[in-house]
Nucleic acid binder design. Structure first.
Lengths: 233, 233
DNA sequence: CATATTGCAAGAGCACTGCTCTCGTTATTG
DNA sequence: CAATAACGAGAGCAGTGCTCTTGCAATATG
C-alpha cells in the first residue's frame, strides 16, 4: 500500500475518497447517466473545476467507481464463500456465492448495471478493471477446484466442448494456474456467464410478470448450473 | 395498419421515420449516452425545437428506439426460425435461433445494450415494449412446443423446480396459452435468461482473454441449454 | 531562514445539452 | 371562406463537461 507522507497527500487521499463517496451516492440514487461532476462538486462545497485535480475527466471518475463496484461484488462473493466454509457441499458453496452476487446486485442495481450492463466509458475497459472483475469468477473456480481436489467432481454433463473451446480453456487454466480439466473450465465459463444472465434479467425487469418467486427460482437455476459443471450429486 | 389520409399525416409519418433513422444511426455510432436531440435535428436540417412536435422528450425517442430494437432482434430470431424449417431437429432449430440473436447483437451492439444492458429511461419500461420484447422468447417457446407436440421432448435434466417456480410457470403458461409442462416452462425461462448472459458477456468484453473461439463456444453452450430443457438427444 | 517551485482552489468562459415559450405560417376542417 | 389546429423557427433558460487563468498556500531547495 502507498504510505501517505505529508499533510498534502493525506488531504488528497481524503478528498479523493470523499469525491468517490459522493459520486457513488449519486450513482446509486440516479444512475450512471445522471451522474454529474458539477453536482458532486456542489455537494462537497467546492468549485467544479477543482474536481479535475483529482479526476481528469468524468469517465475517469466512472472508471474508479467501476473498479470499486467490481471490488464490492467480489468482496461480497468472497465473504459468502468464507462463511460457507470449506466443509460444506460444493453445490451449497456454489449457490451461496451465487446468491451473494444476486443479493449485492439487488442492493446496488445501478452499480451492477455499470459493470455488468452496458459498459459506459468507451468500449474497452482499462486494464485496471480486469483484476477486480475476476474476483467473483475466482470464487467459482475455487469451489470447483476444491471439489476436484476432493475427488467429488463428476465430468460435466452434456456433450463435450469443441476442440477450440478446450484449447481456450486450457490456455486460461495455464495462465491462471488452475488445476482443472479443460472441459470443466469450459463448463465453468458458460455457467459464469449464465449466472449473470439470470441476475441481469431479474434486475432489469425481464422477469416482470414471468417469474414472481424470484429467489427460489434463482436458487434452483444456479443449483442446476452447479450440477451441469459436475459439482455435487 | 393506420391509413394515412392527408399530406400532413403523410409528412408527419415520414419525418417521424427520418428522425428515428437518424437517431438510430447516432445510437449505432456513439451509443445511447451520446445520442443528442440537437444533433439529430441538425443532421435533418431542422430546428431542435421542431423535433419536440414528434417526440415529447429524449426518453420518448429512446423508447421508440427500444421498441424498434426489440422488434429487430425478434424479427431476426423469427427469420432464423423460418429458415430452419419445422422439419429440422429441435436442437438445431434452437441453436439456429440463438445464433441469430448473437449475430444480431454483434452487428448492433449499442442497440443490444439499450434493450438488454442497462435500461436507460427510467426503471420501468413502458407497456408498449413488452410485446416486442417477447418475440425472441416466443421463438424459443415455439420450438419447445413443437418438440413437445412431436413427442420428442424429454423431461428437463436436473432436480425438479420448487413448487413456487412451478406455480409461476403454470400461470405464465395459462396466460400465454402454452401447452407445455410447468417444469419445462421453468427450464425454458432459465435457459432464456442464460442465453442472454452468454451474449451479453461476449458483447461487453467479459470474454476478453477468456474465450477466443467465441462462435464455437457459444454454439456449444446454447446446445447444452437446449439439452437441459429436454430438447434433442 | 528566505526563496523558488509546485499543488491547489476558484472563477470566468466555451461549446454543448434537453427543454419551453412565443410567434408567424401553413394545412385541414366546418 | 373562415376558424382551428398543427407546424417550423428562433430566442432563451438552466444545466452539463471541460479549459484557462489567477491568486494563494504548502512544500522543497539554496
Amino acid at each position: 500500500m502507498t504510505v501517505i507522507r505529508g499533510a498534502r497527500e493525506r488531504a488528497r487521499a481524503e478528498i479523493t475518497a470523499a469525491i468517490k463517496d459522493e459520486a457513488r451516492a449519486q450513482l446509486a440514487a440516479e444512475g450512471a447517466a445522471r451522474l454529474s461532476l458539477r453536482a458532486v462538486a456542489r455537494e462537497l462545497g467546492m468549485a467544479s473545476s477543482a474536481l479535475y485535480r483529482y479526476f481528469p475527466s468524468r469517465d475517469d471518475l466512472l472508471t474508479a467507481l467501476i473498479v470499486d463496484a467490481y471490488d464490492a461484488v467480489g468482496a461480497a462473493a468472497e465473504a459468502a464463500l468464507a462463511t460457507a466454509g470449506t466443509t460444506a457441499a460444493p453445490v451449497d458453496r456454489w449457490t451461496t456465492v451465487c446468491r451473494a452476487v444476486r443479493t449485492w446486485a439487488l442492493a446496488h442495481p445501478h452499480e451492477y448495471a455499470l459493470i455488468y450492463g452496458s459498459p459506459v466509458p468507451g468500449y474497452t475497459a482499462p486494464q485496471t478493471t480486469v483484476q477486480p472483475a475476476a474476483r467473483v469468477a475466482l470464487c467459482l473456480i475455487a469451489i470447483t477446484r476444491d471439489a476436484h481436489a476432493a475427488g467429488t467432481l463428476r465430468t460435466p454433463s452434456g456433450p463435450r466442448p469443441p476442440a477450440s473451446a478446450l484449447t481456450d480453456a486450457a490456455a486460461l487454466a495455464g495462465r491462471l494456474r488452475i488445476e482443472l480439466p479443460a472441459d470443466v473450465i469450459a463448463a465453468l465459463i458458460a455457467a459464469w456467464a449464465e449466472l449473470f444472465g439470470l441476475v441481469g434479467f431479474e434486475l432489469f425487469g425481464q422477469f416482470h410478470q414471468v417469474v414472481e418467486a424470484r429467489e427460489e427460482f434463482f436458487t434452483h437455476a444456479v443449483t442446476r448450473l452447479a450440477l451441469q459443471i459436475g459439482l455435487g450429486e
